[in-house]
Design a protein around this nucleic acid. Structure first.
Lengths: 197, 197
DNA sequence: GCTGCAATACCAATATGTTGGTATTTATAT
DNA sequence: ATATAAATACCAACATATTGGTATTGCAGC
């Protein structure tokens, strides 16, 4: 999984923040710069070399030449258009065209699509790394609030084994905090909230 | 500072997410529900009893009677209007009126104002709280998976202070394990499951 | 039969959390 | 004005978790 860098050029603060929040949840992304006017955009693209540029054409007052100039500036950069106006359909790549009023599914589908495209280009293969049945059981006990020693005693194994399982679990899931593991266990029906001590 | 619960009723997913992000940074808030249509709103207000309702009038297609009905439903609830249209000025309380295109300063000033107003109101009525507001905030960060040191750095306090708060929290609540504290935080709307890392 | 994975066990170094103290400052309530 | 509570800070001893190793066994698939 490569880290994807993103520049957001959008006047509305709430839209900026919304995009940032959505992108953060979408994976290993990073919004490296937010701008609310066109000045300095070209310079930012040159220095930051982002993988994605999310741009509101209003910043250029609709001047499509400038937008094309943006694209030309960077090969590995995917352009996403975010607009508050009707009637932009057809002017831009529909796969990467968002509107202020779009709902969750549209937004997520678009951004995930763009991200997948980039992932494919970068030949980043993401393999699902499921945890084994034994590891699930260990995780369950972690999420229930037991210590390594308590788990070892309950399962009649050495504490070293528990530590090893725990190591593998955190590595496979990419979750290192106990609270994160707890939420994972809840969401994957390994435990119920009322079982936790 | 009590925990403030918020319902966001807004069709645009990005605006939803943007508001959520801004509110999260504003302090001890929690967006307890987001909705993108008017159905179920009254029910949510009744059951969740939020402190703030952020509403886009477009959900009611401009029917101001329904909006007033919202207000009437809850005394301790402050209404914030979020709109994508020009010409709403004067129709609503200007202190609590936002537009899609507003910049950072306007947005923050408005939401901080609303929050301060609520804080002042609530200062009187809090009494039977098991843990203090500060402790709630610490607990929130514990449940999010931060270490004591990370919490100390984020809140600009010593790690000793965090340890002390943590001691008091576990004693007051009688919950020792991190997973237990995490579940408590989820059940008490201090965090949402998808915030945990 | 070889390969790879899962489960088991162990070690050592380091990091982080726990517990039981003390103590100061500020704000609020009686 | 004074008692109380909350937030802050610190210490020391101890407990527990994390990380990066190594190693053995058994089992399933090729």
């Amino acid at each position: 999984m490569n880290n994807i860098t993103i520049v957001v050029a959008e006047a509305s603060y709430l839209i900026q923040k919304g995009l940032e929040a959505v992108l953060k949840n979408l994976g290993d992304n990073q919004v490296v710069q937010k701008m609310d006017k066109a000045e300095g955009l070209f310079e930012s693209l040159s220095t930051l070399k982002p993988n994605i540029l999310i741009l509101n054409p209003d910043l250029f007052e609709g001047n499509t030449e400038l937008i094309k100039k943006c694209c030309a500036k960077l090969k590995a950069c995917k352009l996403v258009i975010i607009s508050n106006k009707k009637g932009d359909e057809g002017k831009y790549d529909e796969d990467a065209l968002l509107h202020y009023n779009d709902g969750q599914s549209k937004i997520l589908a678009c951004l995930e699509g763009v991200k997948d495209e980039l992932d494919r280009k970068q030949k980043v293969e993401r393999s699902d790394e499921p945890i084994s049945a034994r590891e699930k059981n260990i995780l369950k006990h972690i999420a229930l609030g037991l210590t390594n020693k308590e788990i070892a005693d309950k399962l009649f194994i050495s504490i070293h084994t528990v530590v090893t399982h725990r190591k593998n679990i955190t590595q496979k899931l990419g979750i290192k905090s106990v609270s994160g593991l707890t939420v994972y266990a809840i969401l994957n029906n390994l435990i119920a909230m009322d079982e936790v001590k």
